[in-house]
Amino acid sequence: MHYVKAKSIFKSDNGINLYRGCTHGCIYCDSRSEIYSIDHEFEDIEVKENAIELLKKGMIKRKPSMIGTGAMTDPYLPLEKRLKFVRKTLKLVYRYGFGFTCITKSDLVLRDLDLLKKINEKTKAVVQITLTTADDELCRIIEPNVCPTSKRIEVLKTLNKNNIPAVVWLCPILPHINDTKENLDFILDACIENNVKGVLNFGFGLTLRKGNREYFYKKLDEKFPGIKDKYIKQFGDNYFIHSKNNAELMRIFTKRTYEHGILNKPDDIFAYLHEFPEKSVQTTLF
């Protein structure tokens, strides 16, 4: 871990990144790609030491809206237990009448359930959880340093009980590893049982480009001998890699989510995540 002084914190869409880099160790992580210009060891987390100060200044100047984090780095890294940057962010979000959403694989998000509930009662809070693999043992191989799927499903249950909406990222799905109907049905069952608002899927596969491709192939050689050669033969240097089962899995995914009233189109889900309740603006301003 190392500290930097950031010049800014808000992106144009009100997205923020409190940290850069990650210690979850997911073998497929796109954030390792060179395009993101991370100029330090990926596991050496960059902490924006003045992030909370910048957030406060930015919120004072902005009209209340949704604030999101987790697109590049899971905000609930182990160091968050000590630093509590996310918790401090949530306190500011509540104080200034903003809404909040985050993407995470960690059950540490439940530490902040009290603040998420308060924000959701006042404006809007949405928790986005990544689920890729039904089997916990496989999960520990492809996402080794974060809680397994079973614990993430417990997070969904807790959110549902507390009326906090959830969105599930059902991606990436790794060809020859977890691209099966059984895996998909298990995850969809969990989503349906826990009344998730939407399930994000961009096709059953993953993205590979310089930076994350090399790391992914290295891990395939370590954990799944022989699979890398299948990737090279089938996909070459393609950026997006589709499973050969993509058509069948997409049919099942679309049918089951539609039947249960779950949002399944990325554009619709992103519109929902960015939508800020206007009545909350009125309450905050007046």
Rank of each mutant, 00 (worst) to 15 (best):
P64D: 09
A247T: 11
K7R: 15
P78V: 01
K5F: 11
L220P: 00
K210F: 05
S31P: 02
V126T: 11
D268T: 13
F98K: 07
G15S: 14
L200Y: 08
N195W: 01
R251D: 14
N120M: 07
L113R: 07
N163T: 07
Y215M: 04
E275Q: 12
V199P: 07
L174M: 13
I45S: 10
V93D: 11
I141K: 14
I52D: 08
I262G: 07
R87P: 01
V146D: 01
D185P: 00
D74G: 03
Y272I: 01
N183A: 09
I164L: 08
V199N: 04
F286V: 12
F204H: 12
C147N: 14
K117P: 02
L156V: 06
C26K: 06
V167M: 05
K81W: 13
K228E: 06
N238Y: 10
F202T: 13
E143H: 04
E182F: 10
P277S: 06
I269L: 06
Y258M: 14
K218I: 00
T180G: 11
G236L: 05
N120I: 02
I227H: 03
I35R: 15
H274E: 15
I27S: 03
E214Y: 03
E43C: 00
T180S: 15
T23F: 04
H2C: 05
F98H: 10
K181T: 11
I187D: 13
K230V: 02
E182A: 13
Q282H: 14
H260D: 11
Q282W: 14
E53Q: 13
M59K: 03
L156H: 06
I252F: 10
N178S: 07
I269M: 06
N160C: 13
G97M: 04
V4T: 13
T104N: 07
K122D: 04
H2L: 12
A6W: 01
G198W: 04
A271H: 12
N17I: 03
F10M: 07
G99F: 06
G236Q: 06
L138P: 09
G198L: 05
K124M: 01
G99M: 08
Y94P: 00
G68V: 02
I60P: 02
Q128D: 08
F10T: 05
